[in-house]
Design a protein around this nucleic acid. Structure first.
Lengths: 256, 256
DNA sequence: AATAATGGTTCAAATAATGAACCAACCACC
DNA sequence: GGTGGTTGGTTCATTATTTGAACCATTATT
């Protein structure tokens, strides 16, 4: 791995659960030498990607990242556009709704709304979702570029639960169903006891760029609820896509 | 400059005005060799910090940045907290209101509300503000750590207009006034014909972490309007600080 | 058809990154 | 008030990575 990759992988150690980490901790988790880790942190700090707490000397993500993210968001107002619809959907379903955007080879969770009840599915902002074993992933793949689908199915596919589909043929079938139906269903493919539905948010060219999903404890979820949520999530995704692309969303090339 | 610094300085070439850049362009502007530039871009792309348009082959900021920025925001909800108050202030003043956060040695503009009129001060998201020559900068310095103030005054201070204060003593005086008054005033210190007021948003320890400012064309701004806006911006900053720190904002050590 | 852009690649030479060993300071625990 | 185990931080000879001139393939422009 090159030096910039190492620097970035340091940044990736921070999470919602652990937003502040010390030098030794970072060195341990990254596997880099303490001196290396520190040199990288200094470089990142000097550009505002990392900040150091004056008191504890621990490190945290810096304002430079917010800046760049805002510049990106100004050009491509994904969050701004989608968040209100995520809220609406969360209110009407009373279950966890999460929004994700594609990045490299996974989906990046960029927004979450949790219902005000104790028994719920918990998703963290920044959480990374695999493509083959989540409702969001299948919804994304259903409208992704062939190269992306191929790259996904070619890699080694982890089985997170006993229900995870890992045969390319089974995943392809699942994608096909999602494409026809307009939304995907994933029954405990990523975590035991969780059932989700998701739909793809699409760019002007018709290809998926992210997803919106509703996740709920399977124990209290009926088949009728799934169908209802599926329609709702599909409608929300359609509306977000429309708003993003100014009404002129092309019909997708790749139809079922 | 180390390799990670170079990689980051590539990212910094993107802006709201130019959110997409080609390889040659990036190489030219950064001053790096084309091969180097590309290697850096590949590294950044493979971690989702940069995306490449499939059609134009141009590069843009990637979803990985949004992810990290959201993780940061989850821990420290500066934007979430402040934006509503920025909106209120923009509505009541009918002038440009911008919010900034300290980073490295400057203020980073993280949110802007523009009034719906043609003649207005324009501020872009991501814009970097110098500390010594803007209302925000002076407001920040007035409640910054001594080290920060010292580092600022020690550096070479650019004169952006004929009105820019560049003598450390004059800047210190300006800071003192801002501290007493509760808000800063900057009369064309950064751009000719623009007058701004700003107040510091403070962390739990009493030190500034950002600012909120109102900027207007000087031609239509009376002394009374300045005073009125000063109070409003001060109140907004106080409210944001309160909400961020859960009511227990410590009185600042360094008083006038 | 020639010209000058563009994005992208190669490999010996130059440079920057590495890490074991080293401080100093802090904390917990007899 | 030692003692051992932390922590953050630094040094410098060794080592591995980055560098860039020259290269190719495409795609406009003239």
């Amino acid at each position: 791995m090159g030096t910039v990759g190492k620097a970035i992988s340091l940044l990736e150690l921070f999470s919602v659960d652990e937003p502040e980490l010390g030098l030794s901790d970072l060195a341990r988790r990254s596997g880099f030498d303490k001196a290396t880790t520190r040199r990288l942190l200094v470089a990142l700090t000097s550009h505002g990607f990392v900040e150091q707490d004056a008191g504890t000397r621990h490190y945290r993500l810096g304002a430079g990242l917010s800046r760049l993210a805002r510049i990106r968001e100004a050009r491509f107002p994904f969050l701004q556009t989608a968040v209100p619809l995520v809220r609406d959907l969360a209110a009407s379903t009373a279950e966890t709704v999460h929004l994700s955007e594609f990045g490299v080879d996974r989906l990046v969770t960029v927004h979450v709304e949790h219902p005000a009840r104790a028994n719920r599915v918990n998703v963290d902002i920044g959480q990374l979702l695999p493509l083959h074993s989540t409702a969001s992933g299948i919804a994304y793949l259903a409208f992704a570029r062939d190269e992306t689908v191929k790259a996904c199915l070619a890699g080694s596919l982890d089985a997170f639960t006993a229900h995870t589909l890992i045969e390319p043929a089974a995943i392809s079938r699942s994608m096909g169903e999602a494409r026809e139906r307009g939304y995907s269903i994933c029954d405990q493919g990523y975590e035991e006891g969780v059932i989700s539905v998701a739909a793809a948010i699409r760019a002007a060219d018709g290809f998926a760029l992210g997803t919106i999903a509703v996740a709920a404890p399977k124990a209290r979820t009926t088949a009728a609820a799934i169908a209802e949520r599926g329609l709702a999530v599909m409608e929300a995704a359609r509306e977000i896509s429309m708003r993003l692309n100014g009404e002129n969303l092309q019909t997708l090339r790749r139809q079922a």
